[in-house]
Design a protein around this nucleic acid. Structure first.
Lengths: 208, 208
DNA sequence: TATATTAACTTAACACCGTTAAATTAACAG
DNA sequence: CTGTTAATTTAACGGTGTTAAGTTAATATA
């Protein structure tokens, strides 16, 4: 029974309702294991009604990720208050890893699940706004360290440095998620691995 | 029409036939996009016949991965011939990355796809045999560097060092596969990122 | 040699999936 | 009061992984 004429606001609210339900299920069971029918049931709609708000399951996934990217950036931005640029960079790494390990299924969705490339203009987020864009935040922090003359002198490409730091932290977190239950490898503790990765990178990047 | 009584060898051959067909499809289209029916069709059997050789799709996936791990170890073992231990470690990293980027879908299957943890005793591979176990190979190479006294003096945990190096290389490769098509980030070239990661890790790990 | 057994396979079926098309219903516009 | 249309649902399509129930041909036994 369709009561009709929804304001734009009401439509937006329903969209958010769908996204939240989808995220909760995606995060607890993994994307593949969640059906459109299940998401719909949770909010008391039929499965097909989701399709009038999102083109397909992948579009819904992208919308979920978008709000999670926002959450990540929002979590990390408090770090900007730290004074020393190197310390700021260290704690940004720790904050990132903390997010990844606290919300592993979120993280998997965001950084380990292949999706069709998401056009910038289709996203609800603002690129290059450090409030919404965690990569921009990292770049800002890296640029500050560079500005302060703390990097080795041959390191001048801010994007390249940022991407390398990101890769280092991502590598530790991603291996943890996929491989840590594997008995094949005698895993050290995740905190030891994170610490060593950060120490190694600092020594490798920072001027003596 | 079932001609029957297969020798153990014939059964093994069919198993390999299935694994090869599965891998080819998995690698070209991604695991989720390949159906059991499709795999079976390719080798001229019915879908259900696969189930008398593998418990389910996941078991088949694990079998595929097993043979790929073997291929990786086999690719990398030629590196043991290099004399200088540090150089050996560097080239091991390059070999690993080369494998990852040359066979991205293989790599995704092996190191980025969540599976139920695979019991060592169920695997067809020999753990701790450097011929078959790429992690063991890495550990051996790391141990040699340590033996030669080339690591910083406070670095003594071989597993921890190996896992950190692995994480660094994995991070660069994994981000490349998932995110490199994303226009959100101004990506540096993959080779620049790999090179910097290796330089940073060397400076961070090796005694001055 | 005839019969039973069984291994190797296939077909049919189940309960799901993402998605689309068609039908339904309630609110509004004229 | 009637038509239109937006919001939603039901029905349906062609697929999925998997299980249960045949089917068939070669062997083992009598």
């Amino acid at each position: 029974m369709p009561p009709k004429v929804k304001t734009e606001q009401e439509k937006q609210q329903l969209k958010i309702l769908i996204i939240d339900a989808a995220r909760e299920l995606f995060v607890s069971k993994g994307v593949e294991a969640v059906s459109m029918r299940e998401i719909a049931k949770r909010i008391g709609y039929s499965a097909t009604s989701i399709y009038s708000h999102f083109a397909d399951k992948d579009a819904l996934l992208r919308a979920v990720c978008d709000t999670d990217f926002l959450a990540l950036a929002s979590t990390l931005k408090s770090i900007l208050q730290i004074n020393d640029p190197v310390q700021r960079m260290i704690e940004l790494g720790q904050g990132y890893a903390h997010f990844a390990l606290q919300y592993p299924n979120h993280y998997r969705l965001m950084f380990m699940t292949p999706h069709k490339p998401c056009k910038v203009e289709e996203s609800s987020l603002e690129q290059n706004n450090a409030e919404q864009d965690a990569y921009m935040l990292l770049k800002t922090v890296v640029a500050d360290v560079h500005q302060a003359g703390r990097f080795r002198k041959e390191l001048t490409d801010i994007d390249l440095i940022a991407q390398t730091i990101w890769a280092g932290m991502h590598g530790v977190c991603a291996l943890q998620m996929i491989m840590s239950q594997d008995e094949w490898v005698n895993w050290s503790s995740i905190s030891a691995r994170l610490t060593l990765m950060q120490e190694v990178m600092l020594r490798g990047l920072i001027r003596e």
